[in-house]
Simulated assay, not measured.
Amino acid sequence: MRPGRPGLARGAAPLPIHGELTVTFVIDAHGLGRGFVRSTGPLLRRRRERVSAVRDVTFSVAPGEIVGYLGPNGAGKSTTMKMLTGILAPTRGRLRVCGLEPSRQRTRLAARIGVVFGQRTTLWWDLPLRDSLTLVRHLYRVDAAAHAARSAELTELLELGPFLATPVRQLSLGQRMRGDLAAALLHDPELLVLDEPTIGLDVVSKSAIREFLLRRNAERGTTILLTTHDLGDVERLCRRVVVIDHGRLAFDGGLDALRAGAPTPRTLVVDLAAPAGPIEVAGARTVRVEGPRQWLELSGNPAEVVSEVVSAVARRHAVVDLTLREPDIEDVVARLYARGRDVPREPAPGAG
């Protein structure tokens, strides 16, 4: 097993990768931009206009990091992913992935990255999963002994054994996703790019994939860039998030810094013994009532107001249960978009 590649500390020396190049960052994007020309207007009077899908995006990812790349639909996430994997060439800026220029060195890059698209499989639809994985070995020219060892390891970790002989078209969504992960990792890539890897999966399948990715990162040092709308993925996997909106970088830093940069109220959920009108207490505002359950949005610093609010509610009502809910990342990101301006970025891990 190859030793893991931990993230770089400040001032750390660049890391040699596969004996080919010496790179400081697995992903290094500076002033990255991609424009398109589109036609608008009536058929006989069409106008051509230039549209920027990505504008002046700068970020880097150190070896061993797991980074969430977030944004609403149309923000520029998919365009960025296509530039990172060499499908699209940037129209502005500089981009290096594993020390290579993706659009010009796409074949060399393909041998060093793995890509999984949650809504599109890379497996052969009518072949058994085992045969698909064998074909992947030949595509990447993986040594037979190395393929056998990695295939056995991935089969055990992803629990593929029971359906290796099943045609891909007969696999459930969760089984197919695990098969796609195995195919993306058979050639032992340094970088794994994941686009919605848990979309449509049940809770058990999501948990299994998240735990596998964490283990892969911890034991092999695989760098992971993840784009998802499932904020459970982000909170479980990522210590750092990069947020893009309208093609521009809106935030780059840790989850705690994101929450602090776009503060979102905490919510106190109160279960009363019997239905009642909206609770009125200082330091909170009732935002929702469903029978005996009420949702109170806390104002100010929850550490200072929560005990006062709880005491006030308990004095006036028969309380069965109380739950303090922290805002999830989706709420925080939505508030960040609504603010309509950039949040100051904290230094990215490994930046120096």
Rank of each mutant, 00 (worst) to 15 (best):
E211A: 14
V67F: 04
L164Q: 02
D28G: 01
E304A: 15
V281E: 09
A148C: 13
L15Q: 09
L173H: 09
G41C: 01
G118S: 08
E290Y: 09
R259G: 09
S172P: 13
L194V: 07
G41R: 00
L186H: 07
L70K: 03
A146W: 10
L88R: 02
E101H: 11
R316K: 14
A29T: 08
E326V: 11
K77N: 03
R316I: 13
P265I: 06
A182S: 11
R176H: 05
P327T: 03
P128K: 12
L296H: 07
Q294P: 06
T58R: 06
A312G: 11
G31E: 00
D28A: 14
E304Q: 15
G31L: 00
S151D: 11
A152Y: 11
T24H: 14
T198Q: 05
V23Q: 09
A338F: 07
Y337W: 06
A62P: 02
G179A: 11
G93C: 08
L123M: 09
R285M: 01
R94Y: 06
E304V: 15
I27C: 00
G71N: 05
V204G: 06
P275I: 13
P263G: 05
P63R: 04
L70S: 05
L160Y: 10
G340V: 14
G247Y: 05
G41Y: 00
G4I: 15
R47S: 02
H317F: 12
V54W: 00
D195A: 04
M83N: 10
E211D: 15
G200A: 12
K206Y: 05
P263V: 04
L8M: 10
A273M: 11
R285G: 04
A12Q: 13
W295Q: 13
L95P: 02
G11M: 02
P302D: 04
M177Q: 15
E156P: 14
E304T: 14
M83C: 09
A149Y: 14
G64F: 02
L268E: 00
W125A: 07
G11E: 01
T134P: 04
F36W: 01
E297F: 10
A144H: 14
G7H: 11
L322K: 15
A184D: 00
A110M: 05
V57H: 02
T121C: 14
P16I: 03
G200E: 12
L109C: 03
G19P: 03
F212M: 04
V51Q: 03
G93N: 01
V54E: 00
R112S: 08
P197K: 13
M81A: 12
L336P: 09
N73H: 01
R5T: 10
R210V: 08
P347A: 12
T267M: 12
A152E: 15
C98G: 10
P278N: 11
L139G: 08
L21P: 06
P278S: 08
T134W: 10
R176C: 04
T264S: 12
E20G: 14
P327R: 10
G253Y: 07
A53I: 02
R94Q: 06
L158Q: 13
A110W: 07
E346V: 10
R55G: 01
D131V: 12
D28E: 11
A29D: 00
V320N: 13
A274K: 13
T80D: 01
T79L: 07
G19C: 07
T79M: 05
A338I: 13
R2Y: 05
G64M: 02
F117Y: 08
T264N: 03
P275K: 08
R210A: 03
K82Y: 02
P292V: 10
R240L: 00
